[in-house]
């Protein structure tokens, strides 16, 4: 880990960040391929892989559904070089077509980054040549730069100083890929914003979407750094109940998935009930049952159609002791408000 930033560097950092902020993230909205990203043949005792579940059609459908689609937020004014607006005189059909195009463009922005586990570090040794030891004073890296190969499949082979020939580690691959096939907006070295103490400072300011956007741009989704940064951000959002900040961004789905995966749905569920988003809440419970098919909720909500009922069942079966009362109170408050509304009507 790098040394903490000294006072004298702060101004330089600001200057640098100013020149870099806002522009690259918006302009380079990163696209992910939709099929399975990494499948290593070896099956080792590792943590459960969230990716296959995340990529299920049902899960994707639920995640897209719980994320609201507010085009004014997705396409909120961004800092761009000053430019004159242009005006068009359109018939109703032309206008409708233009609006549909804009919605389509906005929808591509909402593509969710895949939720993956930390990548496996396997660097099989290709050959041991002790006679080459001491021949050079730096490692030799050989890269396959054939046009059209994806970065994940590219061959990167390293000759160590002691003469060992092996495949490159994940870190080496990232670096070499960025040199030969640079991604726009990605930096050679990890920006210091992602260092834990700086990250906390940024999260305290509430720049959640900003951090997550930049993380998507800077890291691969299975990079340990990416997983650390995103998970910490989700936790911070959960602690401060700022779920609405991530609505209508590409990060709402992965965040909900994270909470469901780690069985800490209650704050998000409460937020949804409070905002009168019961169908979203019930979708979230369904997502929970897909991720945890062995849970009691899964058995009990089968055949239940009512959204509120679904949430109530979740509250009874899954909620941890500390949250149970709060969630029940929230549901109660919601019901009271509904009754009042009905009475008034």
């Amino acid at each position: 880990m790098a040394a903490p930033i000294s006072e004298s560097l702060i101004s330089l950092l600001r200057c640098y960040c100013k020149s870099f902020r806002c522009y690259p993230i918006r302009t380079h909205c990163r696209r992910y391929c939709t099929n399975s990203l990494s499948k290593t043949g070896r099956e080792q005792p590792r943590a459960r892989d969230p990716l296959p579940i995340f990529l299920k059609d049902e899960v994707q459908r639920l995640l897209y559904r719980i994320n609201s689609f507010d085009i004014s937020k997705i396409c909120a004014p961004q800092k761009v070089p000053s430019r004159k607006p242009h005006y068009e005189l359109l018939t109703d059909t032309q206008l409708q077509k233009k609006q549909e195009e804009a919605v389509e463009r906005a929808q591509t922005r909402l593509q969710m980054p895949p939720v993956m586990r930390v990548r496996e570090e396997v660097n099989p040794v290709l050959s041991q040549d002790p006679e080459l030891a001491g021949l050079m004073d730096a490692k030799l890296v050989c890269v396959d730069i054939t046009y059209g190969i994806s970065d994940r499949k590219r061959h990167v082979v390293v000759r160590d100083l002691d003469g060992t020939l092996r495949h490159g580690t994940g870190e080496e691959r990232d670096r070499i890929n960025q040199i030969y096939n640079p991604k726009p907006g990605r930096q050679m070295f990890t920006p210091r914003i992602f260092e834990p103490e700086n990250l906390e400072a940024v999260l305290d300011k509430g720049w959640y979407a900003y951090v997550l956007d930049w993380a998507c741009l800077q890291f691969e989704p299975d990079q340990p750094e990416y997983i650390r940064v995103t998970q910490r951000t989700y936790e911070h959002v959960g602690e401060n109940k700022k779920f609405d900040d991530l609505r209508s961004t590409r990060h709402f789905g992965p965040m909900a998935f994270y909470f469901a995966w780690h069985k800490s749905l209650e704050p998000l569920l409460m937020d949804m009930v409070q905002r009168d988003l019961l169908s979203d809440g019930s979708d979230l419970v369904h997502l929970f049952t897909i991720i945890h098919p062995d849970s009691e909720t899964c058995q009990r909500i089968r055949g239940v159609d009512d959204d509120l009922q679904t949430i109530k069942i979740f509250c009874e079966t899954e909620t941890s002791h500390s949250y149970k009362g709060q969630l029940q109170l929230t549901i109660q408050a919601y019901e009271d408000a509904q009754n009042l509304h009905v009475d008034a009507a």
């Binding site: 396409c75 961004q78 430019r83 607006p85 242009h86 068009e88 018939t91």
Partner: peptide, 14 residues
């Protein structure tokens, strides 16, 4: 006809 404005900063949303 409709008078519609397009701005770069809002990604040309009509």
């Amino acid at each position: 006809l409709n008078v519609v404005e397009f701005r770069k900063e809002t990604d040309f949303v009509p």
